[in-house]
Structures are given as C-alpha cells and as structure tokens.
Nucleic acid binder design. Structure first.
Lengths: 149, 149
DNA sequence: AAAATTTTTTCATATTTATTCCTCCTTTTG
DNA sequence: CAAAAGGAGGAATAAATATGAAAAAATTTT
C-alpha cells in the first residue's frame, strides 16, 4: 500500500500544484488512500520531494536528478552498518568501523558532500575526518552520531 | 543591506549545512547581520532556496537552475500590472487585461507551468484559460485573484 | 529639510511540517 | 504456534516556517 501511495503522490504532484501536505492528503483521500498529514510528511521525506517557489505560492515537486531519491536512504544505512563509534579531537573526527569497512564509510561520507568536511582519510577500520575548526568538528561529530540511531 | 545580506546567505549555505532558518539567522548574527527568523524566511523565499533531503537531515541549498530566482518575482509583477480582473465560468477562466496586454499575461501564465492549466488563448485585452474541470477553474481563479493583491 | 511615500523589519501569531509515542499488523524465529 | 521483532500509521504535540500589522528605516517629493 505504501509503495502504491507513494507512486500516487508522484503522479498527483505532477498533475496539479500541491502547496501543503494537507492538500496532498486530501487528494490522496479522494483516490482512496486514507492517510493523515503525518504519513504524507514521511512520504515526502522518503521521496525527497522539494517545495519550490513559483509565482503565486510554492509547490511540491519531484527532484530533477533521477536516482537521487534512492541513494539518500542507502547512504544512511551503509554508514549505520559500517560505523561503530564516532569521536572527535581538535578539528578532526575519528570514526571507528567494522574491520575493512573504513573505506566504505569514507566514501559514503564524501557522497554526502557536506561542505564543512575538508577531507577524509580511511585506513582499515578507522576514518579520520578533517574539519575547519574544533567547533565544527564537535557539531559534525554530533550529527554523525545522530545518524547511528 | 538587504542585498548584502542575501549574498551572505548564499555564501553561508554553500559553505555549511544550514538546516533551519534559526541556524541561518545565527550565522548571520555572527557576521554582523542582526536579523530575525522572520526576515530570513522572506529572504529564503526571495532567493528561492530549496530545502533538500540529505543523509542525516535536510539542508537549504541554492536552486541549480540559474536565472530561475530572478524570474519568479518578475512573472508575478508582470501579471499584476497587466491584469485587471479574473473571473471564471464552467471549466474556463476569463482574464481581462489592459488593452494589448493579453498576450503578455498569457505568456506569464504559461511560464508558471501550472499543470492544471491545459492551455490559454489570448486576444487583445482578454485571456481565456482552459482548465480540466469547473472545480479546478474555481480554485485556479482564486489563486490568480490572490496574485493581484 | 520636512513631509510623504515606499521598503524593510520586527513582534506576535497562524500555519505548516516533523516527531514522539503508541497501537496494530506482518514477518521471523525458536 | 507463541513470542519476539520490525514496520507502518495515527493522534497528539513539538518544531519550524510564513504572515499580518505595526513600527522603523530608507527614499523620494515638495
């Protein structure tokens, strides 16, 4: 059902201007999908929909770059399964991974394209991440830790 | 000041992951721009920034398509200055414009790419807009009327 | 340079969106 | 099969964003 509903969402936002999640859940109701705004919010996140400005209001649209949608979830889960701990010192972050997974973890990090990350160095089970300064290191370390749950 | 600030915003969101408007106004504060979230909200709207999903949260980014930002406001104002009244009947909308401006109004309509609009026909001071059905006509007419204020 | 007009901003909210916590299913496993 | 485990979704609510109205600042006019 979820799959079907998300397809319906993609179809709907292509055919009409959807400006709020309530509007979208209304439209879904009409098509027999009985969902609340909460579910729509989750769907929108999973589909990576964008809310774009247009003359006379904003509107949800699909991301132009194909394949983008799929990758976001995967990056997250590769990172989760490879990483054991995240710690930081000075302007660097040290990530410990399962044996042999450091490279994979580093690659997913790079793919996120976080501008705060100057670079990464991967050994066998350790990734060193270089940030601009200590403050940024703490912030990003927290964010990475957050991704583990 | 506004101009400068908006440039600063573009620079900031390129250099670091900005996830909320509060975060952005904090960063602006640090750079000497003393603004509240309300102002940031309006700036984001004017700059047509997007909030993108990324692994581990979402983030504001600049639109990829250059020139897109500038056009949104202009479309709006051309429409405003050309159009006198918006009315509807059945599944069509009738827009009355200043003499000779119907074509311009129709072109701005088309440029909005609203999927509900099947097509437009422009005379000298009248544009006929064809929608899918009466209900849609009412809705879009309301939205167009809203653009006049 | 004072007055008038327009633009920008803030404050206070309204609106919209995300999340937490719980329930109900479905699937897996012992 | 029963219990455990995981996903999906809703209700309530927290968090984030947008907006109306008034004030302040900037600009133009007289």
């Amino acid at each position: 059902m979820k799959q079907k509903r998300q397809n319906a969402i993609l179809k709907i936002i292509e055919e009409m201007c959807i400006r709020t999640q309530d509007e979208l859940s209304d439209q879904l109701q009409r098509r027999g999908f009985d969902v609340t705004q909460a579910t729509v919010s989750r769907d929108i996140k999973e589909l990576c929909l964008l809310k774009k400005q247009t003359a006379g209001g904003s509107r949800y649209t699909a991301p132009e770059k194909e394949g983008f949608r799929e990758s976001v979830g995967k990056v997250h889960s590769i990172f989760q399964s490879a990483v054991k701990t995240v710690d930081y010192a000075m302007h660097t972050i040290v990530i410990r991974t399962l044996a042999g997974m450091a490279d994979a973890a580093a690659i997913t990090l790079e793919s996120m394209e976080w501008p705060e990350i100057l670079g990464t160095i991967a050994g066998d089970d350790t990734v060193l991440v270089i940030l601009r300064d200590a403050e940024t290191a703490k912030m990003i370390a927290d964010r990475l830790s957050g991704m583990l749950k």
